[in-house]
Design a protein around this nucleic acid. Structure first.
Lengths: 338, 338
DNA sequence: AACGTTCACCCGAACGTTCGCATTCATAAT
DNA sequence: ATTATGAATGCGAACGTTCGGGTGAACGTT
């Protein structure tokens, strides 16, 4: 492995002290044009690049942003990660920062991972995702007064910087669309009320139903896990209600549940898009390839990743960022299932 | 933000020199039990954790592994990334290493990203993926004699450490299964011959066909992009061949193409799993939720990520790793489409 | 001729570690 | 009593930067 060039070697070649080279490189030196040129030439000829570790050491910063995510179960999807990560990586790199992904731990041990990275000086800030109510990471980081941005909101009383997708608006759009297509009996397949994201989306459903002057029947609201199995089971129940009560449309809080609902409909001999309308949430990549292609709500993930890093960079600089809380608007993608 | 504890503060509290603390912590000191205990107590009481940047500076190592991947197009899937990344992160962390994801660049600029990370001392090694023939990264890294492991193979004449999934075996399994189900006319939807991965998998098809004593007809081999559109188009052509020539089964080199084929079959009024058998490759998470659930080949991604890092760690230590080239076996997942 | 300014550059120190060698002190061997 | 031995610890230096202050020469001003 080829030897690494240091600033001293550049200095020798340019015939100046190495500190002068440093100053020239950082644009804070009064030097004659000629020496500056000599230094630049030497840098180029030797292919010198400043050692980042030494820089970090001196600056007492790591120029790293910690990030960890819940690894999905083997048969689950994380179609978000690629977009979220690469948008963060891109935005961070432009500011001389890099991402440091670290393993996700459950329960109390989770905070230990964060603490360790702080105490060893490996990161200057965090982006946290999969945020929910009473997230121990949030209280911990606030307490430590350590820079972080959350992708997702938590308890209303906690004040911290976040970026989130407007779940209320997402479901509003879906329901409003269904109402515009003359649907009156619209059901929702939702999540347990321990999920802030789920509650948000459900509220979008409720708001839009109310705004549209439609009945909200408790039996039209199914709450359970965000899985294929629950989606199928819930839809199956909904579609077996008596004809006068049976919903003509179903909105699910994610695509996986919606696909379960699609299966339930098919099992009952109903064709989605004709006999029953189904709308998902997430725009999972395969949703477009289903039978029929699924109408769903797409989240601006790249925008979210970019914005998280943007805010975090300002925080780490010590600035109050211009925007501390950002709510991004999702978009209804019309296909054939509704 | 709370002040960071240094080794000197620990030393003061324990009443020894800071270098002694260092030695105790690194287990290379002859010290009395009592002072050792005093030092350990001080460490615990102050919550001291060694500054990793300073350590890295001293050791002239970053303890970082560079990794970058091709971000997928908005409507594409990367269901691999989550598993691959988290298995690498986990394996790396156990050895005190972390991953440094950096933006993927196209063409010649790609190598610049790698060079920059080397020259600035940010990484000690790389894992590279999306490897193909004549990969400029491989020649560059070999030339620099810089530690790396490839996930995927390249030109046969290049000798470098890699981990790969046995594509030949994967398609063999698929075709052998079809043969066992009495299929005689089996077609393949393959990729352009610029893809090493594609060629490998296609060879698996050819080998198994030959071993099974079946006809290999050129019109049964479609080559094109690994997209939904091409899969549909190719399958459509195949299924419109004259009855005596029409294949009774189709293997595709990835799930996206296979799903395209599923659509083509349906458009022609054929039911997959009954009128025509279709097998994909990748076990994309949604494949199980299709109509019908799709038979496909699953790759041991976590194992691949783990092994890449395992080999790389040995290389970075300066050891010749026990295994330098690893070929992992994929697994046929039987569902209803074949 | 003495003095202040400015320019162009040098130099010491520090960031938080680790490492090799030096030093001190007690104990045992001569 | 002197010397060798070993255990327990201290000390200086170094890793590659950046930063602030210092310094000598050239020049202009009175």
């Amino acid at each position: 492995m080829t030897h690494k060039i240091t600033i001293k070697e550049v200095a020798v070649r340019a015939g100046v002290s190495y500190q002068t080279v440093s100053k020239v490189l950082n644009g804070q030196a009064q030097v004659s044009k000629e020496t500056k040129q000599r230094i630049m030439d030497a840098v180029r000829e030797l292919g010198y690049r400043p050692n980042q570790i030494a820089r970090n050491m001196r600056a007492k910063r790591s120029h790293m942003i910690g990030y960890s995510w819940i690894p999905t179960a083997p048969n689950q999807v994380n179609h978000i990660l690629d977009q979220f990560l690469s948008s963060m990586v891109l935005e961070a790199e432009a500011a001389g920062y890099h991402l440091l992904p670290f393993p996700f731990r459950e329960g109390q041990a989770q905070v230990d991972g964060y603490r360790e990275l702080i105490n060893t000086g490996r990161v200057d800030g965090f982006v946290i995702s999969s945020v929910n109510y009473n997230d121990p990471r949030i209280t911990f980081l606030l307490e430590q007064n350590f820079p972080f941005v959350a992708f997702g909101r938590s308890n209303a009383e906690l004040d911290f910087p976040y970026v989130d997708i407007d779940g209320v608006a997402g479901l509003c759009q879906a329901v409003e669309y269904l109402i515009s297509r003359e649907h009156c009996r619209i059901a929702a397949i939702a999540w347990p009320d321990a999920s802030r994201v789920g509650n948000e989306r459900l509220r979008g459903y409720l708001d839009a139903m109310q705004a549209g002057g439609l009945d909200i029947r408790p039996e039209w609201i199914e709450r359970g896990e965000g899985t294929f199995a629950f989606g199928r089971e819930a839809a199956s129940r909904l579609l077996r209600l008596s004809p006068s009560e049976r919903p003509t449309a179903i909105v699910a809080l994610n695509d996986t549940q919606a696909i379960g609902a699609l299966h339930a409909a098919r099992e009952l001999g109903l064709e989605a898009g004709r006999d029953i309308s189904i709308i998902g949430f997430d725009d999972a990549p395969m949703s477009q390839y289903l039978f029929p292609p699924m109408t769903t709500v797409r989240q601006p993930i790249r925008e979210a990743g970019r914005t998280c890093v943007e805010i975090l960079l300002a925080l780490m600089k010590g600035n109050q960022p211009l925007k501390r809380n950002v709510l991004l608007q999702p978009e209804l993608i019309l296909r054939d299932s509704a």
